[in-house]
Design a protein around this nucleic acid. Structure first.
Lengths: 226, 226
DNA sequence: TGGCAACCGGACGAGATCGTCCACTTGACC
DNA sequence: GGTCAAGTGGACGATCTCGTCCGGTTGCCA
């Protein structure tokens, strides 16, 4: 598993509190899927059969709730990257990474919104994990390029470009799996070395830091900072 | 120009009313760019130096305001399609169409949100224009395919896929022109016939009807409906 | 210049959401 | 079983947005 249970979190809770926590998370996923990530907190609480105060005590901000609700998906992302690095065929790993993340985006309706929401690094530990993830991804890219499978002018930020645009697509067309798959197929094709025909415009200066690949914490409890 | 001034619209207004109308539209573009398309109507009114009532009288719904504010952009889209059809090189026309629409999306900040917002056909005339636009686009596609420039398995819905995903990208990264240009370049490359390597997954059933290429009206004044 | 119809804008009531406070309940440990 | 800290939930005040109403103003035409 990934980055769960940190900082004396849910384990030290009383039994009923732990049960309520789980209920809240489950309800949050459902509600976020139905009404988007901006759904009223009270709706989540009602759905969980819990008072608003309980919800706010456990997750002081909406961010905290969102992060915790989709922590599982984020863990899967991180694990897929690890597996991709272990794959003897680097292109295979790269391709699977893109496909898996996009699959997650299209499967869990609220996830895309959570995906683009910018979460500040809450702890030093998170920052460390994120940096390691970035390094791992760079390694994967270089390896795939060295193997002659990934085009030489592919820039790491292109990965973010792909994910963010796919994210926008599934947000605009929730439920249209065909459209999502099409985009992924087109993008993967144009990332292949054989596809490199003309020159590309300059890459974005965007870093990967804001993508949940970098496994943000699942707990919350940050000061506030809007 | 395109589809402006219909149904005894702004022309029959008194001089001061017409002036206020223009002020409102100008303010709306600024406010939508800054705070998104969901910005409070009162903010737009204040920025325009106008009372809320005036704003509501002129544009009964937010939809109406949004449509009118970006009518110019929509006209440009429609015109670009016409020019693309007239271009002797169909690929050139196709490419320029994609680039122009994406250029508009990245230039005017509120436009992407307006772009994906689903506007119901308000009049029979709008429906007619939209259908004609769809036919024109299909013609362009077929022509480019016949010329051997556009890949044979390109499906018209792929155009919507491209625009919607690009739209999501610029929404997530407003101001990052490099990212936008990169995505467009990648997509155009993979639409070229030479790029067709493996088979693509099935296309989406999505129609182009909801895209502003089809030049929705710029007036508003629909009953209400949402 | 005078009159009227169109136009204007601020105030206002309704409705929604947020996040906190506090009196009551319950699980865990002795 | 008793104690008490941890946990609970609903009520509440603050804030925000919407869309309408109405008394005052102004452009336009005779």
């Amino acid at each position: 598993m990934g980055e769960s249970s940190r900082i004396a979190g849910q384990d030290s809770l009383r039994a009923d509190a732990r049960r309520n926590r789980r209920r809240i998370l489950s309800a949050a996923r459902v509600v976020f899927a139905e009404h988007g990530i901006d759904a009223p907190m009270a709706t989540v609480a009602r759905r969980a059969g819990v008072g608003v105060a309980t919800l706010y005590r456990r997750f002081p901000t909406r961010d905290a709730l969102v992060r915790a609700a989709f922590a599982h998906q984020m863990d899967i992302c991180a694990r897929t990257l690890t597996e991709a690095l272990a794959d003897p065929d680097p292109w295979q790993g790269f391709q699977r990474l893109v496909e898996t993340v996009c699959e997650l985006q299209r499967a869990e309706r609220g996830f895309p919104a959570a995906f683009v929401a910018a979460f500040p690094d809450s702890t030093r530990e998170h920052a460390r994990v994120r940096e390691q993830t970035e390094r791992d991804f760079m390694t994967l890219v270089r390896r795939a390029q060295a193997a002659g499978a990934l085009r030489a002018d592919f820039h790491p930020s292109d990965f973010a470009v792909a994910l963010l645009s796919h994210c926008g697509l599934v947000t605009a067309l929730p439920g249209d799996r065909a459209a999502s798959r099409r985009l992924v197929a087109y993008l993967l094709q144009s990332f292949r070395a054989e596809a490199a025909h003309g020159a590309l415009p300059a890459p974005s200066a965007l870093s990967l830091r804001s993508l949940p690949l970098a496994a943000h914490g699942s707990q919350g409890q940050r000061p506030s900072s809007a």
